[in-house]
Write a protein that binds this DNA or RNA. Structure first.
Lengths: 343, 343
DNA sequence: CACTCTCGTGCTAACGTTAGCACTACTTGG
DNA sequence: CCAAGTAGTGCTAACGTTAGCACGAGAGTG
């Protein structure tokens, strides 16, 4: 690798002069600058950021710690962040945890060792205390999920409101046996969504046993498939189904298609998030739209400002974006079975 | 930030001793090691990789340079790479180029400055010469697309064979007006897929004007929508459509659903790649399965071996994986219109 | 008892870059 | 013609870590 020293020796000047010329220092003559730049370009010089970091410069790497990039939820976020970061000169490090707190810790250790400038994280259910310690030593924001020990910097959607709206739509159509399929309660998002589901039932004046919650791994398509299979073959088949994650929605749609379940006549369904296939699935899936892009952009801008301006002078910052219901054809009243709006 | 020096001062030993204790050097007594580790843990010491790199240690960061992470094609790759890299102690840097060679160059400059250990890249159509220079100075592999100036390390699918099979299937069903919708010819994958399309027509004994190629941006859903709209409203409407990218497929399916085109009676369709929604779209989409996972894993393993073993002693290495056709219900013969296999 | 060995540790330099200070050769003002 | 300034450049130290060499104390050997 070419260093400033190589350039200096070739031109017969000092390393300081080379360094200053490349930094466009006003004290260096135009002629010298020109010669240095020429030589640098000729020799294929590329500055060494590791060395700069040793002299106090901060890293230009921001890490994104998420469960699984294949989930379109997260890939959208990654894209939006990457785009915003790139334009400000930051690079994005991608760490997948698979919702495993030990993997999460391993990644955070590596990220700390690499002295990343900041971390944007979708925390696991109960992060290791060392993870918390490591994060607290860095500029960090939480995304979507929110863990109290990690401070108040958080960007996410109003999960409770999202599920309240989805469920209220079904309640308004007269459903009294509604199943909710979502993530575990120990996940902050899982708890919030479940709360939204329950509160919609309560507000609709329905008894406690009108709702049934099936909780499990939120990013498992397979779990969605299996659960809907179990629900449909068991006793007390619900007339409506509300979903609490994109991956679960994908699994459920696949299984309903495979079994040929008539939607919305036999079963009404409200999905979570919006995916390319949702509009052409069966009668079109009524679903909760999520302003993921806006959220990710907000988060990126916050992190950029946090990194550009000196200390954490902008205090706690929290943004909540609500999700709007996208009406398609997958819901109807439980008796007659006329869609609320055909696709 | 805590340094080895801080630990040394606290324990009244030298930095060397601390360094060696943390590196588990056999020369250090067990008792000292214990005290050092204890203190390091107490004080929240995290080694500084930038400093290590200055002493000749190599980075543990591998970069992935792709057009767009939202494309499930690439997010699958990213996931597979991340998984494999993580288990070997590497971190993954994500750089999105949006198929723009200038963005590509910007990223490569940053990656070089950060002294990443290696680069896995889906190169743009015609990379800047500086990009080529930067890449050649690093361990690198090409993924999917292959640019001759970037050496022979490449992992990808046999694009020509994939489209040959897709097209041959339609030819065998008797179609004589087949449209191909794919990426531009200047992209290596675009050229290969187009070649596969043409060779299948030739092998089927069809005249040159039986096939019609519509080329455009491969990762634009919108372009898929518009082109299919144009094709269907223009003269000489084809009886079959072969697609040459996942994003284009998504756009086409959406538009065909929206216009209520009867598939396969009015139009036969063969997609590219397999996505969650493809199985439940209309009659089920017949499509070319792509062994993306296998390809990504192969690529990751190659890069890991390249980085672990000293020089590039393993010479040029090229893997080609064929794609198999997944038969669903979206194709039929052009006259009668009985599906080859109903969903 | 002197010699050599081994064990455990410390000192120093080096990696590439940058900031502070110092130095030289001019130029300007009195 | 000398003092003071200025433009342009060089020298040196420092960032955190590690590898090579050196050192002192104690153990083993003749």
């Amino acid at each position: 690798m070419i260093t400033t020293r190589d350039i200096a020796e070739r031109l017969g000047v000092s390393v300081s002069t080379v360094g200053r010329a490349l930094a466009d220092d006003p004290r260096i003559s135009e002629e010298t600058k020109f010669r240095v730049r020429q030589a640098a370009s000729d020799m294929g010089y590329v500055g060494n950021r590791a060395a700069r970091m040793m002299r106090g410069a901060s890293s230009n790497v921001v890490a994104l710690v998420i469960p699984d990039i294949r989930n379109s939820f997260y890939s959208t976020i990654a894209h939006e962040l990457s785009k915003n970061m790139e334009s400000e000169g930051f690079q994005l490090m991608l760490s997948e945890t698979d919702d495993d707190r030990t993997a999460e810790l391993r990644h955070l250790r590596e990220l700390s060792a690499n002295r990343v400038a900041g971390v944007i994280i979708v925390p696991s259910a109960r992060p290791h205390s060392e993870s918390v310690k490591l994060l607290r030593a860095l500029p960090h924001v939480q995304l979507l999920r929110r863990h109290p020990s990690l401070g108040s910097q958080w960007f996410g959607v109003d999960d409770q409101e999202a599920l309240r709206r989805a469920t209220a739509h079904l309640v308004a159509q007269g459903h009294t046996r509604i199943a909710y399929l979502g993530g575990p309660e120990e996940l902050p998002t899982g708890a919030e969504r479940l709360r939204g589901f329950r509160s919609a039932l309560r507000e609709g004046g329905l008894p406690d046993d009108a709702g049934r919650a099936e909780l499990g791994p939120p990013s498992s398509v397979g779990h969605g498939r299996e659960t809907v299979r179990r629900l449909l073959s068991g006793p007390d088949v619900p007339t409506a189904l509300v979903l609490g994650s994109i991956q679960l929605t994908l699994g459920v749609l696949e299984e309903l298609s495979r079994q040929g379940v008539k939607v919305p006549q036999e079963l009404s369904v409200v999905g979570f998030g919006d995916e390319p296939g949702f509009s052409w699935w069966g009668p079109g899936l009524t679903t909760v739209g999520l302003p993921i892009q806006e959220m990710a952009t907000g988060c990126a801008l916050w992190m950029i400002r946090r990194l550009k301006t000196e200390p954490g002078n902008d205090g706690p910052y929290t943004a909540v974006s609500p999700g709007a219901l996208i009406l398609r054809g997958s819901t109807a009243s439980p008796d007659g079975g006329t869609p609320s709006r055909s696709a």
